[in-house]
Design a protein around this nucleic acid. Structure first.
Lengths: 97, 97
DNA sequence: TTGTTTGGTTTATAAAATAAACTTGTTTAT
DNA sequence: ATAAACAAGTTTATTTTATAAACCAAACAA
């Protein structure tokens, strides 16, 4: 039987966010928006879900005098991402068992 | 910018079905149900969507005197699956660009 | 023949993604 | 100084999806 995929990560936008954050120390809202092409509303909602799951942390500050929301992946977020990738392998060719 | 993931394939159950079908000549409903652990209703709905997109074909026949629904991946289904896998790579580590 | 299982489909409900509208504050032009 | 436009988000509403529950017909079992 195929393994379950973490539903929190099996979402295009949330996966994109986690993937991006897994490769950098931090990224701000605007950067994530640009990289993913998501609307601000959608991104805001999905970041909230990732935060609620403790997969990321979100810090609100300022860059100059404009608000700036900085996101980071947490250790458990990274762990979940690795587990997701692992599980995903079973869905890819050359994994029939 | 990260590539879009085909929404038809970016669904756990539909991806599982396509993944399984990509590795065999054909598979029947019951087999897919066992391999995926899906409920019959959910599987039925998702097979219909894959059929509507011409990613699979569904043939209704009999095995002995019991009904048997046989599913096969189509060439365009296989193509879409390969494209999906390709796009997915960008979401996996070691793809930061 | 009455109930039970198999092999599904259809319909209803719950959850998710997305978009639209709104808020707060900032910069720009007048 | 004031108004218009913009940036950075949030909130709420709408649409889409996924999932589950209910149902149906044929076969088999008692």
């Amino acid at each position: 039987m195929l393994p379950k995929l973490d539903p929190l990560l099996h979402s295009e936008l949330r996966l994109a966010v986690i993937s991006i954050l897994s490769g950098v120390e931090s990224a701000d809202f605007t950067f994530l928006r640009q990289q993913t092409g998501a609307t601000a509303g959608n991104l805001s909602v999905q970041l909230e879900k990732l935060t609620a799951a403790d997969y990321i942390t979100v810090e609100k500050g300022f860059k100059g005098r404009k608000p700036c929301t900085t996101c980071r992946i947490t250790p458990s977020g990274l762990e979940a991402f690795n587990a997701y990738i692992q599980a995903l392998q079973a869905y890819l060719p050359g994994a029939q068992k």
